[in-house]
Simulated assay, not measured.
Amino acid sequence: MNDIGPGPESAKKTLRRSLAAVRGELTADDVREAAAALAARALGLPELAHARTVAAYVSVGSEPGTLALLDALHARGVRVLLPALMPDNDLDWGAYTGPDSLVRVQHGGRMALFEPAGERLGPEAVLGADAVLLPGLAVDTRGMRLGRGGGSYDRVLARLERAGARPALVVLLYGTEVVERVPEEPHDLPVHAVVTPSGIRRFH
């Protein structure tokens, strides 16, 4: 009997654990310096330079930092949408108007998230975005993204696909998180670009 090895779901879990462990070793200074470099790189992306509406997220813990980028986009006059996690793991959206527009929300036993404090615009609000910044743990040379495993952004991507919306899909990562290959499942979709502190890589 042939051993066909672990399925993509199991392989994803293993890879997530190892990548999260590396992130866990980063210092606050590491995260802060990377966030500044990421913002500078991302602001040069034509997809963000010409965007009127960007769906993004607030980084937590040792994730590649997004707040500097959110503030810079808002200062440019870009409409920035941020997610609010719903009980079924789907995402609602609200507008970001600066650090004071965020509220810390504890979701059960999981990590607390920073979410928009204002009006909820509904899950469909993401359909109006010109670019969507996706959280992730890795992306491979084909543009396949390894998410955090909650499935929230799989729903967002499926919603965009169903509606025929074609925003630019961009992942913010540390340089070591661009890998040769991530395990994929049938529902996984490639992204258009990855931004790291040292540069930008595009996928076709």
Rank of each mutant, 00 (worst) to 15 (best):
G109N: 11
V105M: 12
A56I: 04
L82D: 02
N2H: 12
G108I: 15
V60L: 11
D3N: 12
V178H: 05
A131Q: 02
A39S: 15
A39I: 08
E63V: 10
P186A: 12
E9M: 10
L73W: 01
R110T: 12
R159Q: 02
A131I: 00
E9P: 01
A37M: 14
T14K: 08
P183F: 13
G94S: 12
A193I: 05
A158H: 13
D100K: 14
A37K: 15
A72W: 08
A11T: 07
L85P: 02
R79Y: 00
G151F: 01
T176P: 02
L146H: 06
R16F: 02
G151R: 02
H107F: 13
R41I: 04
S10I: 12
L70A: 02
R110M: 13
R201M: 09
S62I: 01
V156R: 10
R155F: 03
L73D: 00
G150C: 03
A75P: 02
G199P: 11
E177Y: 07
R23G: 04
T97R: 15
R16P: 05
A168N: 04
E184F: 13
R23I: 06
A163D: 01
L73M: 05
A51C: 07
R201E: 08
A72P: 06
L48E: 00
A34K: 11
E177T: 06
Y57G: 02
A95Q: 13
A21M: 05
L137R: 03
S152G: 14
G199A: 10
P123W: 10
D140H: 14
Y174W: 12
R120Y: 11
A28K: 15
G122F: 15
T97C: 11
A75F: 01
A158L: 11
F203G: 06
V179L: 14
R181A: 15
A193F: 07
P46D: 00
E47V: 01
R145Y: 05
G98S: 13
L137D: 01
A68Q: 11
E25A: 15
S101G: 07
L15C: 04
G150V: 06
P135V: 07
G136I: 10
L169S: 01
V132A: 00
A20Q: 08
S101W: 12
L85M: 10
R166P: 00
V105D: 03
R166S: 06
A55N: 05
T176D: 07
N2P: 14
R52P: 01
R32H: 14
V170E: 03
L19Y: 01
V156K: 09
K13C: 00
A55D: 04
V194L: 07
A125M: 09
A11G: 07
R79F: 01
A20T: 08
A35N: 10
D3K: 12
A42F: 00
H204F: 05
V191G: 02
R181W: 09
A39C: 15
G24M: 12
T53N: 06
